[in-house]
Amino acid sequence: MRLYLAIALLLLLPGKVLADSFTVDRVYHPYVLPFEREVEWRLTSRQSEEDGNILMQRISFGHALSEYTILEAYIVGSRDESGDFGVAGYELELRSMLTEQGQYWADWGLLFELEKQNASNDWEFKGGVLTEKELGRFSLTTNVLLVYEWGDTVPSEFESEFKMKFRYRWIPEIQPAVEFYAAEDFIGVGPAFMGIKRFDKQKQLKWELAFIAGLNGDSKDHTLRMAMEYEF
């Protein structure tokens, strides 16, 4: 109940403003490990009748700065109107773990992101709260984020995003889930899967796959997202 109250309060903060540049992306867990180093690749393909196919890929490198904080740097690529794929932007992401796993009623973390578009002087800053609540073999993860955009071609405005994942920890390699996303002009839900394959020592490969269907609007709006993360 406490988690839901906190989420409700945070959702009230930005009022009616919700993210209009929203893309379905990963739901973050509020955990960081010291010595963590990772390279990651993400793909998001959104198919809608209004905009056709929007393809976006991200490649990142992350390194733990301390026992509780990790910094990741991203290069974001997307396909433009003429079908060419190129660098769309750059992003820095700082994720911090606030509480130990299982210490309190839920686990808490923070996320901060700063993104700049490559072709224009447009910026976006995100900050928010990550939570995870363990319910037996299930885990409920939420991300509540406040977004501020500014620049030459975008109006300066606050927005917000809400993401949620309800996961069943079946076996390490396969963990089915349901994901839910809410932002301006977008509400989506769909099945998701994630898994971890361990190799030697701290080396492990994490994968995620989700298919999110937009629930608002009368036309087709589907997003397929994939992510592969190698920790070493």
Partner: peptide, 24 residues
């Protein structure tokens, strides 16, 4: 250091060398 890992317990925690740490 040692990294305690358990899928059964849903926990991961690094215990640094010559130190102590807790898992709940």
């Amino acid at each position: 250091p040692e990294e305690i890992d358990s899928f059964d317990l849903n926990r991961e925690k690094v215990i640094f060398g010559n130190s102590k740490g807790s898992i709940f």
